[in-house]
Structure formats: C-alpha cells, structure tokens
C-alpha cells in the first residue's frame, strides 16, 4: 500500500475550483498550505513479486556472521582464563576466610574443651556427684596367691 499525491493544482485551478467570492470580503480566510492537496490510497498487490537472489549480499552477510562469531570466540578464549581465575580467586578467598574462621573456631573449642576437662573442674564435678575414691578397706584383691608378690616383682623387672 502506498500513499501518492494525486495532483497539485495550480493557483488558477484552485481559484476556479472554489466559488467566486467577492474581493471585498476581507474576512475570508486564506487557504492553508497544502489544503488543496488530496491524498489517495492505492493498494498495490505485490504478491506475485519474487525476490531475486543476491549471492554477493549473501556472502557478505555470512562473512559478517563468521567474522562476528570468530571475534566472539577469540574474545571468549582471551577472557575466559581471566574470568575463570577471578572466579576461582573469589572462591579461594572465600574458602581461605572460611578456613581461617574454622581455625579460630577450633582454637576456641579446644580452649573451651581444655578448660572443661581441667583436673580441678573434674574433681569439683566428682565431688558434687559423690564420685570418690574407695577407702583402702573397701578394696579386696581377688584370688591372692602365695607367689603373687614374686610374680608381680618378676613382671615389673
């Protein structure tokens, strides 16, 4: 579809097209610019048109695509190691921070464990739970044999 200017009438024709008015009519409005232009829409049926092949354009197009892909590939090849190393560096830095935090946490826990297992504290707990050593008379050696002493001595040597 296209829009065409169908005709540009001359000033004389325009004057003839309009009814004659008196020249003394000072209040008559002048024509607006292009007021006398008529637009006509004409439908063009180009369904039967066939695009003619342009091998040179196709070659240029593919060349451009190949060039762009090659440039992109080169860019990727060039930038990938840097990007990957940067990502790895961030990951390593994160792991290092995590490692440091874990080391500090372990130190804290070791410290707490050592304090919790101190003999003084264990003895305090033992006393509170009445876990006392048996008195000498409460211990009985089972199956004492006459040679027990000598055997023990021999084992100790």
């Amino acid at each position: 579809m296209a829009t065409l200017v169908t005709g540009v009438p001359s000033s004389e024709a325009a004057a003839a097209a309009w009814p004659e008015v008196e020249a003394s009519d000072a209040f008559r409005l002048p024509l607006l610019p292009w007021e006398d232009v008529y637009l006509h829409v004409k439908r063009i049926d180009n369904r039967r048109l066939v695009r003619a092949g342009d091998p040179a354009a196709w070659r240029m197009c593919w060349r451009a695509i190949r060039g762009a892909l090659l440039a992109l590939g080169l860019l990727v090849v060039i930038l990938t190691p840097g990007v990957l190393s940067r990502i790895e560096a961030h990951r390593l830095a994160g792991l290092a921070r995590q490692h440091q935090a874990l080391v500090e946490k372990r130190s804290e826990l070791e410290l707490e464990e050592a304090a919790a297992l101190s003999p003084a504290r264990l003895e305090q707990w033992a006393r509170s739970l009445e876990l006392l050593d048996p008195a000498p008379g409460q211990i009985h050696t089972l199956n004492p044999s006459p040679a027990h002493g000598a055997a023990v001595h021999a084992r100790l040597r």
Partner: peptide
C-alpha cells in the same frame, strides 16, 4: 602400676 602388697585397711 600393679600393686605389690595386699591392700590393708
């Protein structure tokens, strides 16, 4: 250390 004497109350 193994005891070398009978324990006596």
């Amino acid at each position: 250390v193994p005891k070398d004497l009978p324990e006596s109350p």
